[in-house]
Design a protein around this nucleic acid. Structure first.
Lengths: 165, 165
DNA sequence: TATTGTTATACTCTATAACTATA
DNA sequence: TATAGTTATAGAGTATAACAATA
């Protein structure tokens, strides 16, 4: 259990992390934004799967998944096959073009990280991976546990209340 | 220097991190989205500053900063004072209401992190903070060094080229 | 001329809700 | 009735470009 000061610092780091994500986003092919890249990456790593499984791996709503999938399918990077066992479902599969796109993504991101993390040791990168994976688990495993937000504390002053409309 | 496989795993963790950010975002007051929270946090931590300084700390374009600042100013959480030394510039300052909003933010995020990271040690949280700070430095310090993106490798096949329109 | 800041526009990502088709 | 997936809509975040005011 950590202290409040540490938590505030952690939140600041989370916020600032956006700049890293954007830097990474800038090197993506213009036809393949981050959402598409995530779809290709997960299909390459886990193999064929249905929409609902992909949505779970992406940790986003299925409606969002559907949009990303439509984008990559329109470019011929994946195919959507009917599932013989359940006609409501569709099985997603990388095409050869999709595999090639995935390779291109890998080349670009590796190149960027080689440059940005040139002075990081193998072990440091591994540490960061491990901690971020644990972070994701700590959040993801309690996704069904929304934290109670208590009503704001009403302070005993004569000040005009903050606008909380 | 790390291996390509490690870099690919790191990118996957970066991508999945969005779920953590969204979980954190869900507990924010409806009037105070993440962008506003970041403005208040940085003003609380670094004290009064001008727009350009804030934009640098946020690592976003000043146009974006301007929008966030307008949002929090409209709610009375900050004031924009003219800079006597440079009439083009505006000095941003937290108001008492802004300070109170900042306290509320701190309470909420601390509560969430206490719950999510209940089984993390103080040291593990410190490790993550340290590595994310270093990551930010590694990226931020080379912001003027856009990575060269070589033309995609044309492979020797008879396959129809990928659509790179 | 260069810099500070604002505004208009456009794009990506996301969630909610309504809907279709199938189980 | 419940579930898999799609689509319409709305909201947040961001960048680029054009602009106004001042240095």
């Amino acid at each position: 259990m950590a202290e409040q000061t540490q938590y505030e610092e952690l939140v600041r780091q989370f916020s600032a992390f956006g700049a890293v994500k954007r830097d990474l986003g800038r090197i993506l092919p213009s036809e393949c934004p981050a959402g598409s890249a995530a779809v290709l990456t997960l299909l390459g790593r886990h193999g064929d799967m249905r929409m609902s499984k992909l949505a779970e791996l992406l940790s986003v709503d299925m409606s969002v998944t559907s949009r990303h999938v439509a984008h990559v399918a329109a470019r011929g990077w994946i195919e959507r096959h009917p599932d013989p066992a359940d006609k409501r479902s569709r099985i997603l599969r990388l095409t050869p073009d999709g595999l090639e796109q995935l390779d291109e993504l890998s080349r670009r991101t590796t190149r960027l990280l080689e440059e940005r993390l040139a002075d990081w040791t193998d072990e440091e990168v591994g540490q960061l991976i491990k901690l971020m994976a644990r972070l994701r688990a700590s959040f993801g495993d309690c996704r069904s546990t929304p934290v109670r937000i208590p009503a704001p504390v009403v302070e005993e002053t004569t000040r005009t209340p903050a606008n909380t409309k």
